[in-house]
Design a protein around this nucleic acid. Structure first.
Length: 332
DNA sequence: ACGGTATGTGTAATCTTTGT
DNA sequence: ACAAAGATTACACATACCGT
């Protein structure tokens, strides 16, 4: 910057004003400075700027499992919005391990990110909650409960909406014995399971078994093996997560089960695999890009005071059930 | 509309004091 | 004399503020 100032024959402060769009700049000054900037190929040092203005213009995004394609979409949505606002994304992956979440929260803090977006492995983990409580920067949780005593915003889905519709659809097709493969303690798993169980509670002869475990392909695989080994098999399986769906479909294929005939199946998230599967898989669909975008918007409301002061504390987006041939009338 | 200058940042390197 | 602890400064840069 000093070299630019010398080359342009002006003061460093003038260079600063030109580059940060300060109003007190004449066209002549702007021209002189920009000329020197181009000649020297000068680019402001973001680290030095951060030192000076106390902001790094970076946002941390702690992801529970980066292998989950839905999270890739959420990140895409968030990054696009943040980039437009001049922020860069710093990504961490916790590989489904809550301990890593804790490490990443403090790591992002030490990296002086201006705010964080968190898709936590387990938002009820006491140490995670403690870490959130002492985190000073603005926080947005993606599709997680907001723990007590933590001031954060949230961008979530109404999982119950799509799950209720899916369950009702299966009931209308005559199904009464359900199996629900679900995740761990996090909000989407809890909400999906609750929606299914509440819907079935209104139907006297309906029964169901839940297979909680975690959002992994492997759990989906094992749960289906367990389900198929039963004496009185369920006639409908609901996989409460896209990776669970993937694992479940693997086991079903290996077992030679033809979906839509003996067994109806509902998965989660409208990934290519669901539509391209034979038969196509009914799913509960959601707009993951939109929730990423919403999370970024909420965070920006905190990062840029005055921009959107009356932003809501929480944004909840809908989910919808998409009926496809993997659901068929129950065998009699 | 401009120039000059003090300021702030966190750590590592360097210098100074203290203790044994 | 030497180690350890404590204090200061260098670093690299951009910007806020003040004065003209």
């Amino acid at each position: 910057m000093r070299e630019v100032a010398e080359r342009a024959g002006v003061a460093m402060s003038s260079v600063s004003r030109v580059l940060s769009d300060h109003p007190d700049v004449s066209p002549r000054m702007r021209r002189k400075v920009m000329e020197a900037v181009h000649e020297l190929n000068y680019q402001p040092d973001i680290l030095a700027q951060a030192l000076r203005i106390g902001k790094t213009l970076s946002v941390g995004f702690a992801v529970s499992d980066i292998a989950n394609p839905v999270l890739a979409e959420i990140i895409t949505g968030a990054e696009k919005r943040l980039r437009a606002a001049g922020y860069s994304l710093l990504l961490t992956n916790s590989e489904g391990n809550a301990e890593l979440d804790i490490e990443h929260i403090s790591l992002l803090e030490r990296r002086r990110v201006d705010g964080v977006i968190l898709s936590l492995v387990d938002e009820h983990h006491p140490d995670v909650v403690a870490a959130l409580r002492q985190l000073a920067c603005p926080i947005v949780l993606v599709d997680r409960d907001i723990p007590d005593g933590v001031t954060t915003r949230g961008a979530s889905f109404d999982h119950a909406l799509g799950m209720r519709a899916a369950t009702e659809h299966l009931l209308e097709l005559g199904h009464r014995r359900f199996a629900l493969i679900t995740g761990g303690p996090e909000r989407p798993a809890r909400e999906r399971r609750q929606a299914v169980e509440e819907t079935l509670a209104n139907v006297p002869d309906a029964e169901h078994t839940a297979y909680p475990g975690g959002f992994s392909v492997d759990h989906g695989r094992r749960a289906v093996l367990e389900i198929l080994a039963q004496d009185s098999r369920p006639t409908a399986i609901i996989a409460g997560g896209n990776m669970l769906m993937e694992g479940a479909l693997m086991s079903l294929r290996e077992a030679g089960v033809r979906l839509g005939g003996d067994l109806s199946f509902v998965g989660c998230d409208d990934l290519a695999v669901a539509e391209l599967h034979d038969p196509p898989i009914a799913v509960v669909r959601r707009d993951s890009f939109a929730v990423g975008d919403a999370a970024a918007e909420l965070l920006l409301a905190d990062l840029e005071p005055g921009s959107n002061a009356d932003a809501p504390r929480e944004i909840v987006l809908p989910t919808e059930f998409v009926a496809r041939p993997s659901c068929a009338p129950a065998p009699r």
